[in-house]
Each structure stands twice: as structure tokens, then as C-alpha cells.
Design a protein around this nucleic acid. Sequence first.
DNA 1: ATGACTTATCCAATAAGA
Length: 261
Amino acid sequence: MRIATWNINSINPRLPQLQAWLARTEPDVVCLQETKCPDADFPDQAMRDLGYECAHHGDGRWNGVAILSRVGLDDVRTGLTDQPDFEGKSEPRAIAATCAGIRIWSLYVPNGREVAHAHYQYKLRWLDALRSTVLQESGERVVLLGDFNIAPTDADVWDRSAFEGATHVTGAERAKLKALESADLVEIAPRPLKYDVAFTFWDYRQLAFPKNRGMRIDLAFAAPALARNVKDAYVDREARKGKGTSDHAPIVIDVETEEQP
DNA sequence: ATGACTTATCCAATAAGA
């Protein structure tokens, strides 16, 4: 089974790129983040035309997460247990579904903005709620995929000195990732197609992509039994090339499963 | 080559991304 995750940075203007990528990559399940549209504007029909059922959780201009599947899409749930609000509102940043017997989460962790900002505390609380929710569901066949907005180590940013005092690299954020590992999840480490580190994000500005000034902030965690059966995982940086692309690249994971396919 | 931000929204200036 081929599972992928991609922060698409607005699904509707990205539809041609997404369709072409689906056709050439042929994933069975795709987690999307930052769809940036209400449910009514999600391109269900275009996805169905390519053989994918869709579950989307979005409310407008910001955020928005989805799961596409061509191997079944059951027991959809949106949001986390005791998910914290931001400025009094619950944001669409988490959706889960069971696809071919695997519990799959598509996640868009809050950015945090600045360490002194309320958004940063919101990010840390949100990650606590994520861990609790996964522990509650307590499945042996769970995978968390998405934009975690955290670089797990200093090697996961293009220049550590450029991130002094910034979010995405703090000990507190990284401790939340470690806490996921203590909830019996292991990270799936994708290989890069080029260079040493499998960056997943490059800013649109200042030639960041051609200069490879990237960050590895899109991540995948799986239950150990599933992680052991991962046959390959890579970041598809080819999808970041050219005009009209997302500023994130997809992660593609091939896992051998007992069930079909 | 990979090319100097991009998006949705009270349509145009703004907030947000990381």
C-alpha cells in the first residue's frame, strides 16, 4: 500500500498539479493539508474521477485537511479529543479515517508564529491533545502524517543559525515529538531524492528551492508493527519544481500490509 | 536548471505562512 502526505497550500489553484501527481505516483491514500477551502469548494468530483473517495474538514480561508483513498474510507472523524481553540475557535487541522485496515491521520499542526506569541502555546497544547487522542484510539495499525511545523533536529533546517529564537526548532516543540514516540509511535524516515536531508518545505522567496534552503517539517509516525513493514519512503522534491506548485513537497511511503492491496 | 512569494478575501490591501 502506498500512502502519501502533502501540504498542498490551497487545493483549488493546485488542482492541475495534484491531478498530474496522483496519476504518476498512484498512491492508495493521500493526506492533504492547507486545502484552504470550505467543504463546499472541495473538488470531490475531480478526485472521484481519479478513483479517490474524499473526506475533507475545512471551513474557509485557512487550514483545512483531507484524506483521499482508493482503498476504502471508513470511520471518518474530524478534530482531536479536547482539541484547544485559538481565539475562541476550533480550527480544522485534524481528520482521521480507516483505509484498508489502517487508521490514518492527516494533520496540520499550528505554526506557532513566534515563541512569545499565543499561537506558540496553542501549538504546544494542540500537540498534547494529539498525543492524548492517539493514545485513546490505541490502535496497533495507526499512522500520523502531515505538516508538523517542527524540525526534529538541527540538521533538519538548512542553516541552524538562521533559526535562532524562532519557532519550529525549540526544545519544547521537539519534546512534543518525543512524547509521540513515548506513545508507541516511531518516525518513518524518508530518503531524499537529492542532497543529504529530505527537506519538505522551501520558502517561495529568495530562491530558497534552487539554493536548497529548506526545512524538514512534514513528518510521518507509525505504530511499530507498521513501521517495520515500510519498504520505502521518500520526499518527492520533483513536485516542488516549476511554477504553480505548493511550497511543500509530498512524502511517499510504501508499506507492506496483510490486507489488500 | 530550480529563477527572485503566494493565497483567499467584503477586489484590494491584508493576514498568514515558516
